[in-house]
């Protein structure tokens, strides 16, 4: 059996989610006697591809085609499907991020392979194949059975973790040229790269502000703490609706759903729709002046107090720890 892992790169380097997916695949492979094949699309150098072996891949299929520089869903789906057929992959893993969301539904329909997105743990059983996923915005967990021989899963960032790498020799690397249909109906007009910032969907730590921050002029505090922790910044919905912060930072049921290791909520009441987007965080810290705020029901640690006073002190204290 083969598990095919879509390893995504940014500027030629594999992203952390790629290693997380391979780690997951390795665990599944050990239980099912499978091999792990990594698929890489783009200009990724050999050393980088070699690293996949340390997490469990024994083979890498790499495609470097100018026509794939723009993410055209249809093209990409054809290419991934072609590789899946060629490698006879029975399980296909992608990250649960914009790339996974763009490709997996089409891939599922093309291959008639059952898709479960946002799987947070190893399969419950392999025959029948059952996985758990959150539904109703985190208010319930479903056991989903995949009825087809071929299966597609997406994994949220940070949910499974990366295993300790070990030297496993070199993977076999194949440079592949797909013959998939290369027509496209979309043209790139402009691109805005986010290179200097930690991406919210991938960040291990997120510092987030709500209406209790009072106004955009107070976000310096959030950014300072985020900078110190190598964290991404986020916000509640009213904050982005008011235009204090960009929509891309809005988390919650109608915004981004994230699962960082640490989520620091500053002046956020913790409405059910907000919590829906953050409830998978491993640790939640809340700063709120209202002792009764619902955010404390989901938080692991909290400070009851004025965020304008608390946040600078917290930043100072963390700085002291980092410098020690």
């Amino acid at each position: 059996m083969t598990i095919l892992v879509y390893t995504e790169n940014r500027e030629g380097r594999l992203i952390k989610a790629a290693f997380e997916l391979i780690s997951y695949a390795k665990e599944v492979a050990q239980k099912t006697n499978a091999r792990v094949v990594a698929l890489s699309i783009g200009d990724v150098n050999r050393d980088e591809l070699m690293k996949t072996a340390n997490y469990g891949a024994t083979r890498v299929v790499t495609i470097n085609d100018e026509k794939l520089s723009l993410m055209d869903n249809k093209r990409y789906i054809s290419v991934v499907a072609e590789v899946a057929e060629k490698e006879q992959a029975e399980i296909i893993l992608l990250p649960d991020n914009t790339t996974g969301k763009a490709l997996t539904p089409g891939l599922s329909a093309k291959l008639k392979a059952g898709l479960v997105s946002g799987v947070a743990s190893l399969p419950q059983s392999y025959d029948p194949f059952i996985v758990k996923k959150k539904v109703y915005s985190g208010k319930s967990i479903a056991n989903v059975k995949i009825l087809t021989d071929r299966k597609i899963l997406t994994l949220p960032s940070n949910s499974f973790g990366v295993i300790e790498p070990e030297s496993n020799g070199e993977p076999q690397i194949e440079e592949f040229t797909p013959d998939a249909d290369m027509e496209s109906k979309i043209n790139l007009v402009s691109m805005n790269k986010v290179t200097d910032k930690i991406l919210l969907s991938e960040a291990e730590i997120v510092v987030s502000g709500g209406r209790g921050m009072k106004g955009p002029e107070n976000w310096g505090m959030i950014e300072e703490l985020a900078g110190l922790l190598n964290a991404a910044t986020a916000c509640s919905r009213p904050v982005s609706d008011e235009g204090w912060r960009p929509h891309s930072e809005h988390v919650g049921q109608t915004g981004k759903v994230i699962a960082p290791n640490l989520y620091i909520a500053c002046g956020i009441s913790g409405a059910i729709q907000h919590v829906a987007g953050i409830s998978s965080s491993k640790c939640i810290v809340a700063i709120n002046k209202d002792d009764e705020a619902p955010i404390f029901d989901v938080a692991d640690y909290g400070i009851v107090g004025d965020v304008q006073k608390v946040l600078p002190q917290l930043t100072q204290a963390i700085k002291a720890i980092k410098e020690a």
Partner: peptide, 8 residues
């Protein structure tokens, strides 16, 4: 898109 935003 992963790593940014695009206008198409």
């Amino acid at each position: 898109v992963s790593g940014g935003t695009q206008t198409l």
